[in-house]
């Protein structure tokens, strides 16, 4: 039986990798990958707690799994939108370097 803390550590590591990737990478697609990674870290957390919770109570609930599935669905939709934006940016800028997308500069 793998203790809960391992999962949490895994999720934290995943999250930090994603965060690091989202902050330091220049490529917009890579940033998107980082964001996806962070989302999945959260999913891992969710599943871990759900499992732990049902073990404790001794009853089987599916709420946690459903929740996670919804998050994955939303992430997929979000990825599609984000990729579409990136493509349209690429068409106009011939570049997907995030630092060049600064039209909102004050």
């Amino acid at each position: 039986m793998i203790p809960l803390s391992w999962y949490l550590i895994l999720a934290a590591v995943l999250f930090l990798i994603g965060l690091y990737g989202a902050i330091v990478r220049k490529n917009a697609i890579a940033i998107l990958l980082g964001v996806e990674l962070m989302l999945n870290a959260v999913n891992v957390n969710l599943l871990a707690f759900w499992h732990y919770h049902s073990q404790l109570n001794g009853s089987i609930e599916i709420k946690g799994m459903v929740f996670t599935a919804i998050v994955i669905l939303a992430a997929a939709a979000e990825a599609a939108v984000a990729l579409a934006i990136i493509i349209s940016v690429f068409r106009s800028n011939k570049s997907i370097v995030a630092a060049d997308m600064n039209t909102l500069k004050g």
Binding site: M101, L104, G106
Partner: peptide, 18 residues
């Protein structure tokens, strides 16, 4: 003065948010 923070770069904002 505050203008300096408005770089328009998404990652700066993200960093600030963090």
């Amino acid at each position: 003065e505050i203008r300096l923070t408005q770089t328009g770069k998404i990652q700066d904002y993200m960093f600030l948010a963090l």
